[in-house]
C-alpha cells in the first residue's frame, strides 16, 4: 500500500500527474456546463414561447428582487438582468436580495409565487465575511510556505 502510494505521489511523470486530473476536471466542467442548464428550466426560455409554457410549475433560482411594486407584486431579475414580474407577497426591504422560489409561469409572461420560497437576506454580508476568512487562510498558509519558482513548488519556510 505504502509503495503504491509513493508511486502515485512520486516525481515520475510529474507533469502528467498534474495535467491528467486537471483535464478530467475540465471535461467534467464542460459536461456539467452543457447538461446542468437542461436540469433547471429558466423563465427566459419560457418567455420565448409563453403560450406553450402557460401554467408550468418550476423552481426559480439565481434571481434577485429588483423592485417591490406593491403588496402583491414584485419584479425579479436573473443574472443576465432579464426581468419578470411576480405575483405574490414578500417582505418589504427585500430589494437587491437573492430569492429562490417555486413559481407558476403564466402567459404572456409573469410568474405566480408559490411555496416554498426563501430570500437570502444576508448574502452580501456572507461574501465580506468569507473574504476575510480567505485572507486569513492565505496568510496562515504563506506564513509556513513560500513558492520556489525555479523548482515550481511550495517549500516550507524554516
Amino acid at each position: 500500500m505504502g509503495d503504491r502510494l509513493s508511486i502515485l505521489f512520486s516525481d515520475k511523470l510529474r507533469w502528467l500527474k498534474i495535467a491528467l486530473p486537471l483535464l478530467i476536471l475540465a471535461a467534467l466542467c464542460v459536461y456539467s456546463g452543457i447538461k446542468g442548464p437542461e436540469l433547471a428550466p429558466h423563465f427566459s426560455d419560457y418567455l420565448k414561447d409563453p403560450d406553450r409554457f402557460d401554467g408550468t410549475q418550476f423552481m426559480v433560482q439565481f434571481t434577485m428582487v429588483k423592485e417591490i411594486k406593491g403588496p402583491e407584486r414584485f419584479v425579479v431579475a436573473d443574472l443576465n438582468g432579464r426581468r419578470i414580474d411576480v405575483v405574490g407577497s414578500i417582505p418589504s426591504g427585500s430589494e437587491e436580495c437573492f430569492i429562490s422560489f417555486e413559481a407558476i409561469f403564466k402567459a404572456p409572461g409573469y410568474l405566480i409565487l408559490q411555496k416554498p420560497w426563501h430570500i437570502y437576506s444576508k448574502d452580501r454580508l456572507k461574501l465580506y465575511v468569507s473574504a476575510i476568512a480567505l485572507l486569513g487562510v492565505m496568510a496562515f498558509f504563506l506564513r509556513r510556505f513560500r513558492f520556489n519558482l525555479r523548482r515550481f513548488c511550495f517549500e516550507a519556510r524554516r
Binding site: L28, C29, S32, G33, K35, G36, F62, L79
Partner: peptide
C-alpha cells in the same frame, strides 16, 4: 455570474 453549472464540479 453565469458560470454556476460550468464550475459546479469543483
Amino acid at each position: 455570474k453565469n458560470s454556476y453549472w460550468f464550475i459546479s464540479p469543483g
